[in-house]
């Protein structure tokens, strides 16, 4: 099978001007991925499926990933001219707010040519209002339920999905529980063995100090 760069070149040759970026995977698995722009994502997916040298006809896994915004502190060494005319290296810390986004990841294999995986990714603009992505269900039917699951748990809206409803949670549910900032409902009334985060939550149900409760926890 071609390397990820070769696949990118194939795509760019077919779709000039398409946004295709190679995302390196630094881990030992070295399963690198292609980040696709929204505009041509579905056409590129169709190309990957039908191109005879690739024939990625099997979309094995589709999933979401939540990347909340985070503060990145970068330390750079800057030469600062000193008053006496010499230059001195000074460490400068710049804080940069990396904007958050939601990501959909697809693992593609070829059943015809028996190779893979090729990983493609799509990213939303942010985590609040620009959360739509083109659906790849029309290309691979296997995404049908998986994209519904991503919609349910992460809140990515897939445009062009034939039946985008909640799948695992009930329809009235409002939250997206797999997001990193999800706060679960408080049902910690009975936690006999709490520690760390659970202890903090269970404390909300303890009686006010000074009541008759046993302080050391022995029953």
């Amino acid at each position: 099978m071609q390397s990820i760069e070769q696949i990118r070149d194939l795509i760019v040759a077919r779709f000039p001007g398409a946004e295709v970026t190679v995302i390196q995977n630094p881990g030992p698995a070295a399963q690198h991925s292609l980040l696709l722009g929204h505009a041509q994502a579905r056409d590129i997916a169709l190309f990957l499926r039908d191109e005879p040298s690739l024939k990625l006809d099997f979309c094995s896994n589709a999933t979401g990933v939540d990347w909340p915004e985070k503060e990145i502190v970068e330390t750079t060494k800057v030469k600062v001219a000193q008053p006496d005319g010499t230059e001195k290296l000074v460490e400068q810390k710049t804080k940069r707010l990396q904007p958050g986004y939601l990501e959909a990841v697809y693992h593609l294999y070829s059943m015809a040519l028996k190779h893979g995986p090729v990983v493609i990714r799509l990213r939303t603009g942010n985590r609040t209002d620009a959360v739509s992505l083109p659906s790849l269900t029309p290309v691979w039917r296997s995404c049908e339920f998986q994209e519904r699951e991503i919609f349910d748990l992460f809140g990515i809206v897939f445009e062009g999905h034939p039946d985008l409803r909640r799948i695992l949670m009930w329809d009235e549910f409002k939250d997206h529980p797999m997001r990193k900032d999800y706060v679960e409902p408080d049902d910690y009334e009975w936690e006999p063995t709490p520690h760390d985060a659970v202890l903090t939550k269970a404390k909300g149900h303890y009686p006010a100090p000074g009541s008759t409760a046993n302080a050391e926890g022995g029953m």
Binding site: N25, P26, G27, P28, A29, Q31, S60, N61, T63, V65, V105, H107, P117, V119
Partner: peptide, 24 residues
């Protein structure tokens, strides 16, 4: 504590392809 990165591992389970996708 694996190095930052991701991996998708799959096997042929009795019901089909069971895979785990992990990001570290």
């Amino acid at each position: 504590r694996p190095k930052a990165g991701e991996a998708y591992g799959r096997i042929e389970g009795p019901k089909g392809e069971i895979g785990f996708y992990l990001i570290s």
